[in-house]
Each structure stands twice: as C-alpha cells, then as structure tokens.
Amino acid sequence: MQKIQRIRTLILSIFTLAVVAVVIFVVISRRPPQYYVRRGIAFGTDVKIAYATRKKNAEAVVNAMFDELNKLNNIFNPYKPGSELYKLNHSNGKWMEVDPRLLDVLKYSIKFARDTNGDFDPTLGRVVVLWGFNTDNPHKWKLPSPYEIANALKDVGYRNVEFDGNRVRLLNNVWVDLGGIAKGYAVDVLLAMAKANDKSSTGYVDIGGDIGIIGPKYGNQPWKIGIRNPRGTMNDAISYVYLYKGTIATSGDYERYIIVNGKRYYHIFNPKTGYSSNYFESVTTISKSGILSDAFGTAAMIGGPSKIGKWANEFGVAYMSINEEGKIQKNSLWKDYEKP
C-alpha cells in the first residue's frame, strides 16, 4: 500500500516538473523579440531609435527610418544651401512648387500660428540669423542692437506665406525657419513608418529629446522618460513620466543662449518683440502628435503662463512648465502620466 503511495507521488512529481518545463518552454517561445537599437546624428542632434517587431525586419526598418531622417533634414534645414526650404527662402517672392512634406508642415505651422494669435510664428528666419542662432558656433551668437531687431522684424509675419495648390509664395522678404516644429514632424513620420511595417511593433524614436513612442516596452510596460533639469547637467532629470504611447517634446532656454549683462537671451523669439520671452526655463508637452508637442512648447515659451493653460485645454495636451524661478507647474492631464 505504501509502495503504491510512493509510486503515485513519483508520477505526480514527474507530471509537475513536465508541466513547469512546458510552461517555461511556451513562455520562451512567446517572448517578444529584442530591441534593435541604433544611434545616429540627424537634424543637428543625436537620434536614437529602438524597435522590436515580430516580423524580424527591425534592422531594415530602422535603417529606412534613418534614411528618411536624412531626407527630411535635407528638406527642412533652412540654412543649408540646396535644401528645399533654403530654395523657398531664396525664391524672391515667386511661386514655388515644394515637396509635399514641406507643404504639410508649412500649412500646419501657419494654422498653428493663427491658433496662437501669432505667438508661434514660422517666419522668424531673419531674426534667427540676426542673432546668429542659425549656426552651431557660440562665438557667432550675439545681442543685436534694438535698431537691427526692429529692422529684421519688418520681414516677419506668418500672413506673408501664401498657398496655391502645392505651390508656395513668401511675400515681404520673410524667411521661414521651422526649427520649432520640424523635429516633431520627423517623429510623426518615423512613427508612421514603424506602424506601417507592423501595427503591433514596439519601441521609440528619440530625435534629440523629441520622443515618440512606437509601442509599450516589451508590449506591456511604459517607457520611463526623464524631463531634463534645465539648470542641471545633460543627464540630470528633474521629473519623470511614463508613456505607453504618444509623443513628448521639450522646448527650453538652455542650449542656444547668450547671457548679456546678467540677462539670458535664447533662440525662441517672440515675433512681436524680436527677443526671447523670459517666462519659462522649459516647457515639456505630451500629446498624440509629435508636431503638436513640438509646436506647443515653442508657442508656450513665447506666450508664457497667462496663455499656456488656455492653449493646453484647446489643443488637449499635457504640459509641465518650469518658470525662471525654477517653479514647476503641471496641468491635470500631465498628472495622469506620472504613475507607471
């Protein structure tokens, strides 16, 4: 009788181990593929893409994404002779047929300018050049005289961009600079490429801090994203959010700036004054689309605390701002992202 008992226990033991082995095997065979990660430089900044797809073509897709980035860079860099936008800026007010991607972004930026009553303005190219912020060389960044600024402001105004089908005309000498929006657009383009390849693919694209989520980490976890401390070092986060999807972008005063007589001047200009507004050190925005996240931050840096809340409601974005005293402000939508 005891012998039978022992045999039964033995059989059960073997059965258990077999079940566990099968379970482990099933889990292993169902595990999501590893992330293919590639870093590179585009849009004058570092780019990182992590991509996982069950279709096993992650590397090819990421390479295609980098190729696309280079193409976009060649369209949207206004200071690179030969780029599509350079040609438009030098078209002397004549109608010019432009790349559909440039047309898209131009139309979006003009609409956004209208929606923010001109606080966001894509035609500040002349002012950017005047301050020298079009170059990467800080020795060329300088505080212009009030007279020079007033003069350059004459050649600014989003109403000077006219459309006719796929043709564009720039009036009144304006120069278009899509710096506040092109990276965000590129994020959207790359996300669409990733999703077109495989709807259930996951990962992210990070174009110099403009981030778009392709899908949750390992399919079910959020990506933890640090918000850069505007007065800290490069890897110093001041706050965190958790994203399963969507995009996040930051506009700030801490990379391209000069300090003259104790006052900070940076590269985001108020189209009405020709100077930067000194409301915020940075504004970080979460929204469905990269172009919106990017544009919103730029507009908010100019519009300041009196407009940011109203705009956030209108555009349905989550934001976190840090003002010049270092005080952090978040809207209620933002708080939803602070929990994993």
Binding site: D46, I225, G226, I248
Partner: peptide
C-alpha cells in the same frame, strides 16, 4: 564631430529616455 559615446552594461539610469530641448 559626429561622435556618440554611450555606456553599456553598467548600472542603469533611473529612466529609459530623456526629453530635452
């Protein structure tokens, strides 16, 4: 200079990504 230096296999940061200007 188109140079990127990143660490690997070390203690990880407290975040996956950083959003900055």
């Amino acid at each position: 200079n188109r140079v990127i230096i990143h660490t690997e296999g070390a203690k990880s940061t407290s975040y996956d990504l950083m959003t900055s200007q």
